[in-house]
């Protein structure tokens, strides 16, 4: 049975996207686990991690996402388990059921240290499972090199099957290679792949907003896959917005306003807008709803105020959603073209 533990030193390195790309290349059934969840969802007394649900739905996995995580908070994990019982639990979770294929992806929590107090940090997971341990790093050159040197100097890989590092979101991979290949070779860190920064993968989609904000979709559900490249807060009149350069020239934008700003909403509908997010639970007029429906521009209604919603969106990652077929295929292509699959020993 092959196991791959995917971890990162920092948040938002792209672990889930990498697993999606790798799993696409695998072209056979696999198991996915995220023992210490960080994107918690709770509905009808069921608890799951967003990434687990995403991967389950993209690949139509047979196990339920709520069974892919042990916990999300120290308090509960420590209340239920100690180090010994948690090892046992992990081993039960990674054991294939009858008829299941054998590859297991284990996604570690958001950073290398996250979950250590609950016995579920990345290095512990690698040790419990004996899986191939991969570190994903990304960002600007300095961040990447800091991460790699930090790993080299301070992280002991004793009893860990360390596969190497995948460098993600590199704006210019060729330039990066020419600049750092020799240095990295000297450092003795195996680089499994250098993946380019792809603009398309970095933008939020309307689906991301729907998944995270739980709005009421009032109109334009055909546009939920729309990409969001700009965000505009429409607290002014529609006339004033039309004099604002960010509004006029902002393409594929998300406009955040309230339902009673009819003039603002109409101005947004008449410009290059991907989605209009209506705050404070104020329903717009019915003619606006009809117009948005005709144009296929989603109108999303939330209870929260504009400031709070803007804060939430600011913190939001451009997570994949099931409908992002283009993005998912792009990830597969990036992995095929840039990752040394032999090192990963996935049987591809």
């Amino acid at each position: 049975m092959h196991k791959t533990v995917v971890a990162s030193i920092r948040k938002n390195a792209g672990k889930t996207s990498l697993i999606v790309g790798l799993a696409k290349c695998l072209e056979k059934e696999f198991l996915y686990l995220k023992p210490y969840g960080d994107k918690l969802y709770y509905r009808k007394k069921l608890l799951w991690d967003y990434d687990a649900a995403l991967i389950t739905s993209i690949f139509d996995l047979s196990r339920n996402p709520e069974n892919m995580s042990i916990g999300f908070d120290h308090s509960k994990v420590r209340y239920k388990y100690d180090e010994k019982t948690i090892t046992k639990k992990i081993s039960e979770m990674t054991a294939p059921e009858e008829g299941e294929e054998t590859h297991v992806f284990i996604e570690a929590a958001e950073t290398l240290s996250y979950g250590a107090f609950a016995y579920l940090d990345a290095l512990s997971l690698a040790r419990y499972t004996g899986g191939k341990f991969i570190i994903v790093t990304g960002g600007d050159d300095e961040t990447i090199m800091d991460d790699i040197y930090f790993l080299k100097k301070y992280i002991t890989m004793e009893h860990i099957d360390f596969g190497g590092v995948i460098i993600n979101k590199v704006p210019n991979p060729e330039e990066f290679k020419s600049k750092y290949s020799e240095i990295l070779k000297d450092a003795g860190i195996h680089i499994i792949g250098i993946l380019p920064y792809v603009d398309e993968l970095m933008h939020l989609t309307v689906n991301n907003l729907v998944d995270r904000l739980f709005p009421r979709i009032i109109a334009g559900s055909s546009g939920l896959a729309n990409s969001i490249k700009n965000i505009f807060i429409g607290t002014m009149s529609g006339k004033a917005a039309l004099q604002n350069l960010h509004f006029v020239h902002g393409v594929e934008k998300l406009v955040i306003t309230t339902g009673d700003r009819s003039d603002m909403i109409i101005s947004a509908l008449e410009s290059d807008t991907s989605c209009i997010l209506l705050t404070n639970d104020i329903m717009p007029d019915s003619n606006i709803i009809s117009k948005a429906s005709e144009l296929g521009i989603p109108l999303l209604l939330v209870i929260e105020d504009t400031y709070r919603i803007a804060q939430l969106i600011e913190k939001m990652e451009a997570l994949l959603t099931r409908g992002d077929t283009g993005k998912i295929n792009a990830l597969k292509k990036i992995v095929i073209e840039n990752v040394d699959m032999e090192t990963l020993d996935m049987g591809v």
């Binding site: 999300f72 209340y79 239920k80």
Partner: peptide
């Protein structure tokens, strides 16, 4: 409507986290 220890533990985790 938490009906057992398991649900109390889950709810506690969710509330704290959120």
């Amino acid at each position: 409507d938490l009906v057992n220890e398991h649900e109390v533990a889950d709810a506690y985790e969710v509330i704290m986290k959120k």
